[in-house]
Simulated assay, not measured.
Amino acid sequence: MIFKIDLLEALSIQADCTYLSDLKHLDGLRRARLVRALERVPPGAAELREWNDALEYLTGAQPRADAEQARAALITGLSAV
């Protein structure tokens, strides 16, 4: 049996969040750990839609044209806060 979880759900697990909405309220240390984890995730690990969903949900940024751009914008956006 194979289970696939959405990128946002995987990020909430990685950040040890009880609820998905907790991702929006990470302290600086947990946010930095999440950024480091994202840096190890290749763009092809999730669909473009998932990258853009995470980008918009966590940073409010507009969708990007490809997964690599969306991943990079997500990392940059999370690092800036």
Rank of each mutant, 00 (worst) to 15 (best):
V35I: 10
A15I: 04
E68I: 06
K24Q: 14
W51F: 11
G77D: 09
A80T: 15
G28F: 06
L74F: 06
R31L: 06
I5G: 03
S21F: 13
I5V: 11
A70D: 05
R64H: 05
R71E: 07
F3A: 11
A61R: 12
E47H: 13
A15L: 00
Y19I: 02
Q14S: 13
E68W: 06
S79K: 08
L20F: 11
L7K: 05
A15W: 07
W51S: 02
L7V: 08
D53I: 05
Q62E: 14
L48P: 01
L74W: 07
L11D: 05
R71I: 08
Y19R: 14
D22H: 14
A45L: 02
D66C: 05
Y57R: 15
R71Q: 14
D16H: 12
E50G: 06
E56H: 15
G44H: 11
P63L: 00
L74V: 04
G60S: 02
Q69F: 08
R40F: 04
E50Y: 03
A45S: 15
L55S: 02
R64N: 00
A65Y: 08
P63R: 10
E47A: 14
R31Q: 12
S12A: 15
I75Q: 06
G28M: 03
D16R: 14
S12H: 14
L34V: 03
L23R: 01
N52D: 06
A65I: 05
T18L: 11
A37Y: 15
C17P: 01
L34I: 02
N52P: 01
R64I: 00
G44K: 11
R31D: 05
T18E: 10
Q62V: 13
L26R: 09
A80L: 12
C17A: 03
R64T: 00
A73D: 07
A37V: 04
A54P: 07
R40M: 10
N52H: 01
V41C: 08
A54T: 12
H25K: 14
L78N: 09
L8N: 08
P42R: 15
V35S: 02
R71P: 09
L38N: 09
D16C: 03
A10I: 00
K4Q: 14
L58M: 04
